[in-house]
Computed example of a mutant assay.
Amino acid sequence: MTFRGMATVSYFASDWAAARTWYTRVLGADPYFLRDGYAEWRLGDRQAELGLIDARFRAPGTPAGPVGAVLYWHVDDVGAEVARLLELGATEHEPPQDRGHGFVTATVLDPFGNLLGIMYNPHYLEML
């Protein structure tokens, strides 16, 4: 198999400094890698990477706003996490949805226009 796992999910922000501060607060940790216009955090059980990129580095022709694929981060309580993200300045995109068989998903927009997915996934816990 050629796909071995998610390496990095990237979010863009026009106000990169404000976005870095927001994600540091959301994630409860400073980035482990930082340079002008780019920050990375390692998250969760498998240390997946979240990269935050200054929008000036966005490839030409890339649309801004909530487009494309949604990456869902596993959380233990979707409703509580949505409430916390809304308190921190995110806006609701899709409220928590029971997808059956123990799966619950929701999406919010971060204050910088990125789609942030969260999910409770029983299969994720089985893999641990």
Rank of each mutant, 00 (worst) to 15 (best):
M1T: 14
M1Y: 04
T2E: 08
T2A: 15
F3M: 14
M6E: 06
M6A: 14
T8E: 13
S10M: 09
A13G: 11
W16R: 01
A19E: 03
R20A: 11
T21D: 15
W22E: 03
W22L: 07
Y23I: 02
Y23S: 08
T24V: 07
T24M: 03
T24C: 06
R25H: 08
V26R: 01
A29P: 00
D30Q: 15
Y32R: 14
F33S: 15
L34G: 01
R35D: 08
D36H: 12
Y38A: 10
Y38I: 13
A39Q: 05
A39V: 06
E40F: 05
W41A: 06
R42T: 12
G44R: 08
D45L: 14
D45E: 15
R46G: 10
Q47E: 13
Q47C: 13
A48P: 02
E49M: 13
E49N: 13
E49Y: 11
G51N: 10
L52H: 04
I53R: 04
R58M: 13
A59E: 12
A64P: 02
G65Y: 00
P66H: 08
P66R: 05
V67D: 06
G68F: 00
V70Q: 07
L71E: 00
L71G: 04
Y72D: 03
H74N: 09
V75P: 02
D77N: 13
V78Y: 05
V78E: 11
A80S: 14
A83Y: 03
R84L: 12
L86E: 08
E87N: 10
L88H: 03
L88Q: 11
E92C: 11
H93Q: 12
P95C: 08
P95E: 11
P95R: 15
P96M: 07
D98R: 04
R99T: 05
R99M: 14
H101T: 01
F103K: 04
T107S: 11
V108L: 11
V108S: 01
L109H: 04
N114R: 00
N114I: 00
G117V: 00
G117Q: 03
I118C: 05
N121D: 15
N121P: 03
N121S: 10
H123T: 13
H123A: 14
Y124M: 08
Y124N: 12
Y124G: 04
M127A: 15
